[in-house]
Simulated scan of single mutants.
Amino acid sequence: MAAGGARPGAAKTGTVLAAALMILVGALGITQGAAAIAKDEMYALVGTYVYKFSLTTWGWIHLVAGALVLLAGLALFTGSVLARALGIALTALVVFANFLVLPYQPVWSAVMIGIGVFAIRALFHNVGPDAV
């Protein structure tokens, strides 16, 4: 057993779970972005919104962020500390983007925020020499 009673296998499992969640968030972000780019009508606009981006712009934001998170999730399998840091930063970016798009898709954004926050927690929780 490692210091503090933690098991090294559990830390590695947490990192693998975070990577899988990041790949899922990335794939869903790509899908979300492609749908918004293809047809603005697929999103329901609720009232007025402070951030005046067109839905096509939001689509490109989600598409690019989703692709980056997917790649960072794949990079986590290498065990790189840089991949972990990029994973945290990029997943936080996706969570923030989904927070901003809440008025357009409240349920979908809430699901994406939940998955993203769980992935970030797993990446932060499993740090140290036994994490990878």
Rank of each mutant, 00 (worst) to 15 (best):
G5N: 05
A10F: 05
T13Y: 01
T15Y: 03
V16R: 11
V16Q: 07
L24D: 07
G26S: 09
G29E: 10
I30D: 04
T31D: 13
G33K: 10
A35H: 13
A36V: 00
A36K: 15
I37P: 05
I37G: 08
K39G: 15
K39W: 14
D40Q: 15
E41P: 11
M42R: 11
Y43Q: 10
Y43R: 15
A44N: 12
V46P: 10
G47F: 07
K52R: 09
T57A: 05
W58P: 04
G59M: 00
I61A: 13
H62M: 15
H62R: 03
H62Q: 12
L63W: 10
L63F: 12
A65E: 05
A67Q: 00
L70P: 09
L70S: 06
L71G: 14
A75T: 06
L76N: 09
L76H: 08
F77R: 05
F77V: 08
T78G: 01
G79H: 00
A83C: 05
L86A: 13
L86N: 06
G87E: 03
V94L: 14
V95D: 07
F96A: 15
F96R: 06
A97S: 14
A97H: 08
N98E: 10
N98F: 10
F99T: 05
L100C: 14
P106H: 11
P106D: 13
V107E: 10
W108N: 12
A110N: 11
A110V: 09
V111G: 08
G116K: 08
G116V: 02
G116L: 04
V117Y: 04
V117D: 02
V117I: 07
R121Q: 03
F124N: 07
F124M: 00
H125E: 02
H125Y: 12
N126E: 00
N126W: 00
G128T: 00
A131Q: 06
